[in-house]
């Protein structure tokens, strides 16, 4: 049971890092539906380096993050010209491209995957997730963070105000690639095995859902979203299994995904801007209530 909880904590930590990887571009108004692909790049880079060359773990991790970040940078330069649904499709296409390359390159194990000799325990992963969380929070409190949010709200006016909109977007997308690469590397070291199916489009969709349902307006949204989508399905696994045992014994645990789906739809209807919004957070903290309004 303790092993199960440890495993859950690591998955949560990885999901938090990945949620922030997707949050950074989304915070500038760029939806990224290729989050898992950047994770795959980081994971395979880590797996390849540790099997072929071997190096201290932090070095491998830094290289994995750099490779993923570099690819994000090059991709951002070319696809951030597209907007809205076209950008989503471009990131999605990129994810398909990454899967295709991994499956067809023998050095990366193809469809069989790769075993990873190095191992890292849960503790360091949770610490790194904490560092990422604090780092992104600090970043969002800088003028660069303000520029990101301004770009998200109105890129024309942001440009007029002297903000380098394109530079801001490329930087945020690249930084997201770096974070996803770190999460990928950590994944490879923790599970000691990578296979391309892990980083499929469903994973990318989940990562985007963490952010969109958690809320993109504040830095807390991705954390809440990642925690919700990591913990709640597991809770349901437990609840549904017990319910099934009590009645007919027929209820499959996969029912939990139906419940999760319903909750997701309800959340989207009830809170289209995400669970955590700025006004909502302000009201919750009770500070500086809404100023008196004129008619």
């Amino acid at each position: 049971m303790s092993g199960y909880l440890d495993g859950m904590a690591v998955i949560l930590a990885l999901n938090v890092i990945l949620a922030y990887a997707v949050f950074l571009p989304v915070a500038t108004g760029q939806l990224n539906l290729g989050g898992a692909a950047f994770q795959a790049v980081g994971a395979y880079a880590a797996a390849y380096i540790s099997t072929q060359y071997g190096a201290p773990l932090p070095v491998i991790l830094a290289v994995s993050a750099s490779v993923s970040g570099l690819i994000a940078f090059v991709l951002a330069l070319s696809i951030l010209r597209t907007k809205g649904v076209y950008l989503v499709l471009a990131t999605f296409a990129f994810a398909q491209f990454v899967s295709g390359v991994i499956i067809n390159v023998d050095a990366l194990g193809g469809a069989l995957g790769m075993t990873v000799p190095e191992h890292v325990g849960g503790g360091p992963i949770i610490v790194i997730a904490g560092v990422v969380l604090v780092g992104v929070m600090l970043l969002m409190q800088t003028r660069f963070g303000l520029a990101m949010r301004a770009t998200h709200d109105d890129d024309t006016v942001a440009e007029l105000m002297g903000i380098g909109v394109r530079r801001t977007r490329v930087a945020a997308f690249t930084l997201g690639g770096v974070l996803a690469g770190i999460a990928g590397g950590l994944y490879a070291f923790y599970f000691n095995f990578v296979e391309v199916q892990t980083f499929d489009s469903l994973s990318s969709i989940y990562l985007l859902l963490f952010v969109l349902l958690g809320g993109t307006q504040t830095v807390w949204g991705p954390l809440i979203g990642a925690a919700f989508f990591t913990i709640v399905p597991e809770l349901f696994r437990y609840v549904v299994a017990n319910m099934g045992g009590a009645s007919a014994g027929q209820l499959d645990t996969s029912w939990r995904f139906i419940i999760l789906g319903i909750i997701t739809v309800v959340m989207m209807v009830a809170r289209p801007e995400g669970v955590v919004t700025r006004t909502g957070l302000g009201r919750l903290l009770g500070n500086r209530r809404a100023a008196p309004r004129e008619a």
Partner: peptide, 21 residues
Amino acid sequence: IRLMPHLSVVENVMVGQHART
């Protein structure tokens, strides 16, 4: 009016300072 809707009043005004950074 083209204010940034998700930014607070003071944050909107601070975006205006960007040209001086």
